[in-house]
């Protein structure tokens, strides 16, 4: 078993109104950021998973997203998984 790092980005599904993102976007011209569009707010969630391999770790993360981290009615998730860094035996 190895420890994998996981980063989940929880996003509002396309078409779901995002009043928070819209408010941030409306503030941008006043700050001189012309031409910035499509601001969408989400959540980033990091955790570690003990798993036999990267596919296993991803499956665990997907299940976790489905059951808890997202509300599938309004949200979806992008999952990134990093394998453990190479390290000498016994150090980790």
């Amino acid at each position: 078993m190895s420890t994998f790092e996981v980063l989940v980005e929880v996003r509002l599904r396309p078409g779901i109104a995002d009043p928070e993102g819209a408010t941030v976007e409306r503030a941008l011209p006043a700050l001189g950021f012309a031409g910035v569009r499509g601001v969408r707010m989400g959540k980033a969630i990091r955790f570690e998973v003990e798993a036999a391999g990267e596919d296993d770790a991803r499956r665990t993360a997907e299940e976790l997203c489905r059951r808890l981290l997202t509300n599938p009615v309004i949200e979806d998730a992008v999952i990134e998984v990093w394998p453990p860094p190479p390290s000498p035996e016994g150090v980790r």
């Binding site: 779901i16 109104a17 009043p19 928070e20 408010t23 309004i74």
Partner: peptide, 10 residues
């Protein structure tokens, strides 16, 4: 069914 999101006026 459905979900409850942030109020549109924040």
């Amino acid at each position: 069914p459905g979900a409850l999101q942030k109020n549109s006026g924040l």
